[in-house]
Amino acid sequence: MNEKTLELKGSELSVSPSNRVLYWVSLLIIMLGLTGLTIFFEAHSVGPGTPFDKLPSYKWTTYGNLLFAVSAVVYIAHLWLPAEAVGKWATGLATGGTIAVLVGLLARWFEMHEVLQDGHAPVSNLYEVTMLFSAVTVLIYLGMESAYRNRAAGAFVMPIVLSAVGFELWLVYDGQASPSNLVPALKSYWMYSHVLANFIGYAAFAVAAAMGVMYLLRANAEKRGLGADAFAIRAFPELRKIDGLIFKAIAIGFPVFTLATVLGAAWAYEAWGGYWSWDPKETWALIVWLTYATYFHLRFVKGWVGTRMAWWAIAGFGVTLFCFLGVNLYLSGLHSYGKLG
């Protein structure tokens, strides 16, 4: 098909995997260092009953969200401004935003010892998990960006992240952002792994859906004869490649999402003696699982690719969103850690 002859250019030599590991590890160290400094210097201002918007973690979250917003603008501008420097700024801002939000979450974890006199991971209400969702989504996207060296999808992933940020702001406005005590059943080590794995799954499916939108835009432009030279479309990878990226994002998320569901079942088994009780959240997790299981069968066995699968990825994320938010919005059950309206 598209045969290329390799031309070696010394300056273009790729970042080696060992350097990449070094890069991510140094980011991790920066994040932990900032968390440590935050806790060390601002511990005196935190005590029982301190309102959440006076907590140092809230500042970090706000800075992080601002960085996400600027990064989204730069990613979108990068579609028209192909200069490498613009792309690097977009990546840098998104990376900075993730670090700030994660520092906010980690600091909040420690603050909860003071505020509630009972510490637990900041994954217990809708506000906290939405923060986690935004950070993990950006992380998974950045991982794929660095692995596949293409930034076009950022312009589609970041708006999803910004929607999450908008939802956070609404929760703040609605008074649902304060940390709260856990009911005894939630006090378990299973919670950390179950929630984290779930949000890795959700985030990967969000990235896949963003790429699905990118696919449909390009497919539509090509159908209308605009072709690869059209203004923003020029920055998109070819359709076949976007299709592969969508698949990869779902393939990253699916095993972790399966793990999350099994961890949830194991936890329920330890707390209530039943791993599966057809609670609405459980049932919707199964529906999400079946949706993506069908995706793989259609792709691997029936050989479906392209527009149909891009739509499938978008619809799959719709089902995922209902599992994440809709169940809390419309249905009742065991996972009543947040409400809407």
Binding site: L6, S14, A147, P237, K241, D243, G244, L245, K248, F300
Partner: peptide, 18 residues
């Protein structure tokens, strides 16, 4: 590879060619 994206395969081919 059925389980890899084309971009991933291309990046690997590039590395192998080098």
């Amino acid at each position: 590879s059925a389980g890899r994206s084309e971009m991933g395969v291309e990046l690997l081919l590039e590395r192998l060619c080098r």
